[in-house]
Amino acid sequence: MKKLIISAITVTLLIFGFAGASSAASTTYKVQKGDTLYKIATKHKVTVNQIKSWNGLKSNLIKPNQVLKVTKPAAKNATKNAVKKTPAKKAPAKKKASYKTMTVKATAYTADCKGCSGITATGINLKKNRNAKVISVDPKQIPLGSKVYVEGYGMAIAGDTGGAIKKNRIDLHMPTKKKALNWGVRTVKIKVYQ
């Protein structure tokens, strides 16, 4: 008899225990006086629109003692909680510098001379910009406006032309006549960037 009573008590506790657990994870909520859809949605970690959709509500009007569904259906819950994986955006690929290498004869000039206007073929005023890195080129070989790296001179702009500047010959602008004479005539490698 003791075993029967203990078994009955155990079964009763289990039934009430599961009933309590079931009500704790309830999918419905009984509206209390002063409740709003916003308060209920916040409490159950859902949106107002979800509650309205699950309960077929056309407006935000609710009444005390009204019973509302407040838990998402399982399929939607799984979708909501799943981490949405979107492909990572790739950073734009850096353009590889495109250039051609040439070996040229390089002389030097200055805008500080008699009869020199100091204005290049592309309009650069070398008298106002004495330290400008500008080279004279044959536009058939090196397009005007190109960036050109000159060994021993640095990065320059192909911004001028000259009567004696043909084929693989360039003329480098120097700020003073002394620097132009010090450069002299050299054979150098250049990189013409496109």
Results as ranks from 00 to 15, higher is better:
K147T: 12
G152L: 10
I142S: 06
A164P: 13
K133H: 02
L144E: 01
S136P: 10
G163S: 15
T161H: 09
N129G: 02
D160V: 01
N129P: 01
R130H: 12
V137Q: 00
A164D: 14
G159E: 03
I135R: 00
G152N: 14
M155H: 07
K133V: 03
G163N: 15
K147M: 11
S146I: 09
Y149C: 12
E151Q: 09
R130W: 13
G163V: 14
D138R: 08
S136Y: 05
G154K: 10
A158M: 10
G159A: 10
P139S: 11
P139A: 10
G159K: 03
L144W: 00
A132H: 06
K127Y: 04
V150E: 08
N131A: 13
M155Q: 07
R130D: 13
A156D: 00
M155S: 04
I142Q: 01
V134P: 06
G145W: 08
N129F: 06
D160S: 08
Y153G: 11
K128V: 05
K127H: 04
R130G: 12
M155V: 07
S146P: 00
I135Q: 06
I142A: 07
T161P: 09
T161F: 03
G159R: 04
G154S: 01
R130Y: 13
P143R: 10
N131L: 11
K127V: 02
I135D: 04
M155R: 02
A164V: 14
M155F: 11
G145D: 07
I142N: 08
V148D: 05
G163M: 14
A164I: 15
